[in-house]
Simulated assay, not measured.
Amino acid sequence: MNRTNVTGYCMDVIHAVIEALPYDVPYEFFAFAKPESYDDLVNQVFLENYDAAVGDITIRANRSLYVDFTLPYIESGISMVVPIKEDTNSKNTWVFLKPLTWDLWAASGCFFIFIGFVVWVLEHRINKDFRGSPNQQISTSFWFGLSTMVFTHREQVVSCLARFVVIVWCFVVLIMTQSYAAILATFLTVQQLQPTVTDVNLLIKNGDSVGYPTGSSLYGTLKQLGFHDENFKTYNSAEELDELFQNGNHGISAAFDEAPYMRLFVATFCSKNTMIESTFKADGFASEGVDMRHVDNKWFRKKASCSNPHTAGSSNSVTLGLDSFWGLFLIAGVASLLALLIFAAMFLDEHRYTLRCIDPEISFWRRICVILRVYDQKRPQFKDL
């Protein structure tokens, strides 16, 4: 007896479903001649010419009026595939700014200044390097904070509280500089690949040619989007689609098809093309819920060459944001504030008798000025904190 032997992703799914059933189900496959549309195949089930249909049948509202679908086993929808090219903007004059986002740059700059101020407060009364004219003290504070970026601060830190703050901050800076250097090296050495186009409207505006599978119902959908007949080119296989992408001005700028087919195409030609997020969503291809990992790995796993960062297309370069380091900034901020509170408590306790002698009739701001004048005086005899 001649039996039809059919292979493919959908066949592997139905075999996995049948094997997962707790009872035997006798079945026989019959090849259905290539229909003009999948609606013809669904209609054959409705007419009871077949008990069921197995294949890449998308769940749609009009089809659900006549037949019942199983649970979807793969996400569907219309996706767009476009070629990838090297990002020429990834290597320019300001590439050194790209590893960090603007909010992380701003937060880092503020913390460098803040740490310099904290160390100045803790060292001003006992360290001659942090005394002098107002301009000299301001410049020393800025210089000390910024120099911790490259660990070149020449001012000696003598108090234990200031040493504690500097140690914590240098730990934060060390992690940040190492992370920054790693990301910058990636920008400078790894080939950055970007999709040639990401917007369907841009294709329509430029009058670019696009491809879709021969006989696909996508023709009507693309016409509704605004494409014209002269913009369409059809293909019958993944190899033909790859040739269309390679034909330059006589080829296509993008291709449209169901997301599973695009995933399979990109898995084969990953070094040349990338898939854009689904343009239109559908409910998916239908089947029972089974463990699909081994089936997906068999058909959709990318080739080994795709794991090579020099050939794999990547639409988003890795950058470091404030959310990556807010914990470290929190530690540095808490350590600094804690040191300031301890210093303030010790200072007020040391000069409690002097502060009690202040005239209670003077205003609050006059009292603050008196305290600051006392603070500005050099400590006559420094005892290590």
Rank of each mutant, 00 (worst) to 15 (best):
E230Q: 13
V197M: 09
A254S: 04
G289L: 12
A238Q: 08
T274H: 06
R293N: 12
M262P: 05
K298W: 01
T214G: 04
Y212M: 08
L188V: 15
K223N: 07
Y219P: 03
G207V: 15
H250D: 13
L222M: 12
S271V: 09
L202Y: 14
M292S: 07
M262A: 00
D242I: 00
H294C: 03
I276S: 07
L188F: 14
N297Q: 08
N273A: 06
D199C: 12
T268R: 12
E243P: 07
M262S: 02
T196D: 05
T221K: 12
K233R: 15
K281R: 10
D257S: 12
Q191L: 10
L225T: 00
S271Y: 09
A238K: 04
M262V: 00
P195C: 05
L264K: 07
A282F: 08
R293V: 15
A282N: 09
N206G: 15
Q194N: 07
E239F: 08
G251Y: 11
V190M: 10
H228K: 15
E230R: 10
L203V: 11
T274P: 01
L202M: 09
G226C: 07
A255G: 08
Q224C: 08
G211I: 02
Q194S: 09
T196S: 12
N249S: 13
S287V: 05
F245H: 05
Q246V: 03
I252Q: 02
M275F: 01
N247D: 12
N201F: 09
T234W: 06
F227Y: 02
L264G: 08
D242Q: 09
E277G: 02
Q192R: 06
A254E: 01
T214Q: 13
S209K: 15
I276F: 00
P260F: 08
V197E: 14
V197Y: 02
E243Y: 01
F227M: 10
S216I: 08
Q192G: 06
T274Y: 04
D208E: 14
V190E: 14
D208R: 03
T189A: 15
N201Y: 12
E277N: 06
D296C: 03
L244G: 06
S278M: 05
M275A: 07
G211Y: 02
S253I: 05
S278I: 00
A259Y: 09
P213D: 07
V266P: 00
L188K: 13
D257P: 03
E243R: 00
L188S: 14
E243Q: 06
V295A: 00
E239T: 10
K223D: 07
T198V: 15
L218I: 14
N297H: 06
G226E: 07
F280R: 04
A267R: 05
S278P: 08
Y235I: 00
S271N: 11
E277S: 07
N206M: 13
T268G: 01
L218M: 13
R293E: 14
E277V: 08
N231G: 10
N201K: 15
Y219K: 14
Y219M: 09
K272T: 05
G211D: 03
G207I: 14
E243D: 08
